[in-house]
Amino acid sequence: MGVYTSVFWHGLRRYATYRAATAAGILTNSVFGCVSAFVLIAVWEARPGLAGWDAADAVAFVFVAQALIGVVAPFGPSLEIGERIRTGDVAIDLIRPVALPAWWLAQDLGRAAFGAVFRGVPTFAVGALLFTLTLPDGPAQWLAFAAATLLAALVGFGLRYLYALSAFWVVDDRGVQAVAWLVGPFFSGMFLPLALFPEPLGAVLRALPWSAMVQVPAEVFLGDHTGAGLAAALGFQAAWAAALLLAGRALTATAVRRVVVQGG
């Protein structure tokens, strides 16, 4: 087992100790999912066939979105590295023989894995118990959704890593994070499916990385993409994940050089 695998398990186990927080998370996400589901059911009764979905599709979208909260963390938690930069503890990280971005990615994927299994699955189960909702057709579609979820987690990390890195340049990264937590849920389709946004706003939001966190995986779940369309959807997520991770790596190198050469 390499160091990054160890860090992955560390991230997972850290969240496993917060049992009450996990239970509270499931409750909040389920309740919000129910409210959202009632609203969307009313919308689809008024406009059947909107976005090519029926009401059961819309309800599934809502609960997939709620289930993804624990994975892609659109409301935080922020990565610890922001605070470590602020307090100077990042000096400790710099004298270790590890790559900073890889280290924090491994830890956050541990958190995401825990969130998927112990927050996402129960939240979705509540929705499936209370409402009629669409499920993927067969194992291939489930598998595609699993891949889309993993890519969503990478995009979620990529964005949050950039938010946290801002601490190298601004005095306090918490302002940046506060804006991010406000914008992220809207842009990702978490609050409202992007199909319901007026054009051209909807099209713009679809092209931004946030849509790769919720909108795209939920569409994959619903089977909106098949064949080449599915490859394009996953490719869109993968491209954003790669772009964000590379940007994170490049910015880390710049920031470290700046700190090391100029003393901050």
Partner: peptide, 25 residues
């Protein structure tokens, strides 16, 4: 650094050491 720690606040000491072992191979 006397005023900072290299250990992980949420891990038992033993697990912190195990993680360091991986880190330094």
């Amino acid at each position: 650094f006397g005023q900072r720690t290299t250990l992980w606040w949420d891990l038992p000491l033993r697990d912190s050491f195990a993680l360091l072992r991986r880190m330094y191979r």
